[in-house]
Amino acid sequence: MTATTEINKIISKENLVYNKTSVLLDNEMHYCPGCTHGVIHKVIAEVIDEMGIQDKTIGVSPVGCSVLAYNYIDIDWQQAAHGRAPALATATSRLMPEKYVFTYQGDGDLASIGCAEIIHACNRGENIVVFFVNNAIYGMTGGQMAPTTLEGQVTATTPYGRDCKVTGFPMKITEMIAMLPGTRFVTRQSAETPGAVRKLKKAAQKAFENTRENKGLSFIEIVGTCSSGWKLSPVKSNEWMKENMFPYYPLGTLKDE
């Protein structure tokens, strides 16, 4: 038996162990090669599929690279003004308490312009899930400084490196949110290895289960990469993230009540 025929024998329906969930649409993603958004979208779609909640889930997309998230996950979506996703989700969840409502926001959207909305939605303990993607840079607008940009990090608006004396310090928004009594589950995850993706998926599952049990707000930060903004290859970006982001933004669950 030749190698090719052996492979062809393996490639058959009954041996399938991993494929794209049907909740993820076939539209080609506009993200750059290696972008963490793609992995997070996939994880969310898989959880929605496995929990059987496609017809009960409403996503709120932000302004930023993931503004077009509604082109990829096959659910009803609302597209929010910059930073306002938690306000949309608040009303949606209160007016339809039986639904699963989540926001999907980047670091500029959530931690900068939308700081008030996220803090207050968390403080009210809205029964929603928040996915917060932190790659320490503005992607869509071309690599400017984000609130989470690390000290010394070069961006389009900190071309000589972020000087904390001038621009303040990288914001640990997840730690702030964990302090608010309205939040139930606050965790920081990543998605660069198979193990990390599995952990992220478990966290997402738990978050949506919290919604089902009306437990209040679940907040998942995902430390991710932006190879275009960082001007590194996708593989090098993961290395840079582990070396520089993880020490400042340590992975793990901050709160689980």
Binding site: I10, Y31, K42, A191, P194
Partner: peptide, 14 residues
């Protein structure tokens, strides 16, 4: 498959 951002990999196993 897990780490692929564009979900272009299908995996089979025997």
């Amino acid at each position: 498959g897990l780490v692929c951002p564009d979900t272009v990999i299908t995996v089979y196993r025997v």
